[in-house]
Simulated scan of single mutants.
Amino acid sequence: MIFRLDERLLFPDPALAEEDGLLAVGGDLSAERLLLAYSNGIFPWFSDDDPILWYSPHERFVLFPGELQVSKSMRKVLRSDTFKVTFDEAFEQVIEHCSAAPREGQNGTWITTDMKAAYTGLHKLGFAHSVEVWQGDALVGGLYGVHAGNVFCGESMFSKVSNASKTALIWLCTNTNYGLIDCQVYTEHLESLGARMIPREDYISILHNNASKA
């Protein structure tokens, strides 16, 4: 059963999600609702022609920073002067670049105009962050996401040149105090860096246990 949300600020139990993770339809993208969603293991994922769809997958693809795997060739890239990395210096540019490419397994952009506005609002409130990767003065890669306690809920990443998005994720794991990076959906790219599946129950337990940590 898929739940239909109204103006009330609440979500059904994530355990009631459909097999594909779809939990609810409707509601809005207010900061309050988004923060409530993330703190309970729920995230929005929909296209321009869809209503707002809320997901809580039965398994979560995550990366524990302590399990990060960096290849020898990637270590060489990181030691070079190929890239410069910044944090929260070009959030709107990062989300714009991310919106230009479809998410794996989905046709068209899923980062709609309303989504951009909502996450930019969260960024201004201090809840959404970006990592930027530069080559000279050009923004060539990056990622953005939302923090829920000391869990970083990654939303999207992009790469204009080889290894740029990997550099962003490695920097996030090694230069911040997040205890877990939520990658949401499986990709071989992230698996090669050490990401793995965990049950939703374990993920939500981690969220709730770390809710008060920044």
Score class of each variant (00 low, 15 high):
D20G: 00
V133I: 10
N175L: 10
Y203T: 07
F11L: 06
D13S: 11
L139V: 10
R196W: 06
K84Q: 14
H58Q: 12
P65I: 03
G21R: 04
K213W: 07
G142T: 00
K124E: 15
L143Q: 03
A37Y: 02
F127T: 01
G136R: 10
E32C: 12
R79A: 14
A17E: 12
L5W: 00
H123D: 04
R79Q: 13
V133K: 13
F11A: 02
I2Y: 01
S156F: 03
G121P: 00
A164M: 10
D20Y: 04
D88S: 01
V131A: 05
G66K: 15
S39W: 07
G136A: 09
G149F: 04
G26M: 05
I2D: 02
C173L: 14
G154T: 06
V70R: 15
V131M: 06
E67H: 14
R79E: 14
F87E: 12
F43H: 00
R200C: 11
M115T: 02
G108N: 07
F152D: 00
N163T: 13
A148C: 12
M157H: 01
E92Y: 04
S39I: 00
K160M: 10
A118T: 01
C98Y: 06
L10V: 12
V62C: 09
S56A: 15
G141C: 09
I181Y: 00
K116C: 04
N210M: 04
C173R: 08
N177P: 04
N107P: 11
K166A: 09
V133S: 04
Y119F: 14
Y38E: 03
T82A: 15
P12S: 02
E7F: 11
S56L: 07
I181R: 06
N150C: 08
R79M: 09
S73R: 14
C98A: 00
D137I: 10
L22N: 02
E188N: 13
G126I: 09
E19P: 03
T187Q: 05
A90Q: 01
F11R: 05
C173P: 06
E191N: 11
C173T: 12
S162N: 11
G27V: 06
H147L: 05
Q69M: 14
P14L: 04
I42S: 11
I181G: 06
H147R: 15
W45R: 09
A37L: 01
V85R: 08
L125D: 00
S39D: 15
M115N: 08
G126F: 09
H97F: 09
G121V: 05
A24K: 00
I198C: 12
I198M: 14
V146R: 06
E201P: 01
S156M: 07
F91T: 02
I111M: 03
M74T: 13
L36R: 04
D202T: 11
Q184N: 13
V146W: 03
N150I: 01
A117I: 03
N177H: 11
H189W: 09
F158G: 00
R79H: 13
Y38W: 09
T82I: 12
N209F: 03
V185T: 14
F64T: 05
H208D: 13
F83T: 02
T167A: 13
N150F: 05
K72E: 14
A101Y: 09
F43Y: 13
S156P: 02
L16H: 11
S39K: 11
S212K: 14
N40S: 13
Q184A: 13
L139R: 01
G142D: 02
A24D: 09
G108K: 08
F46C: 10
I198A: 12
Y203S: 12
N177I: 10
Q106D: 07
P51V: 05
Y186W: 14
N40C: 07
